[in-house]
């Protein structure tokens, strides 16, 4: 059913443009999945540390982040599908495909660094609320002066 649909669309237009779109969707979505899986796997320990060892919370945040990541990226990929020049031959098809995939990669990169920035903020906030490791020995009375 699916290959037939694609073949029909491709055959109908007979054009490089449709093949470019198909290749674009395939490459972009695979890249998104790969990046999301990598982040999910390697980001866990970073999150656990940012959340001061609270593992269940870290796992939950990790999962929610991956869901948001998929939504934003696949949303972006589908929205950006029709914009840009239309391919007329193999050369323009490759050029357009490259531009579009490049844009997706840059957006993925920006999101990635934005996530890291948020985590480091969280980590800093957590250190501000960590209690001192030792107890004071005695009180002094402070007067304003």
């Amino acid at each position: 059913m699916k290959p037939m649909l694609i073949a029909t669309i491709a055959g109908e237009a007979g054009s490089a443009a449709v093949w470019t779109y198909i290749a674009y969707l395939f490459v972009s979505v695979s890249l998104t999945v790969w990046v999301a899986r990598t982040l999910h796997k390697n980001g866990r320990i970073f999150l656990v540390d940012s959340l001061l060892g609270n593992e269940p919370l870290a796992d939950s945040v990790n999962h929610l982040l991956v869901v948001g990541f998929y939504l934003i990226n696949i949303g972006f990929v589908t929205l950006a599908l029709k914009y840009g020049d239309k391919a007329t031959d193999a050369q323009t098809a490759l050029e357009i495909l490259s531009t579009k995939v490049g844009l997706v990669l840059v957006v993925l990169g920006i999101m990635h660094f934005f996530n890291l920035f948020i985590f480091s903020k969280m980590r800093r906030r957590a250190t501000l609320h960590r209690p001192p490791p030792i107890l004071p020995e005695g009180p002094v009375k402070m007067t304003r002066g």
Partner: peptide, 10 residues
């Protein structure tokens, strides 16, 4: 000395 007046010595 912390802002609540606790002294840390030694």
């Amino acid at each position: 000395v912390g802002d609540e007046g606790g002294v840390y010595a030694g």
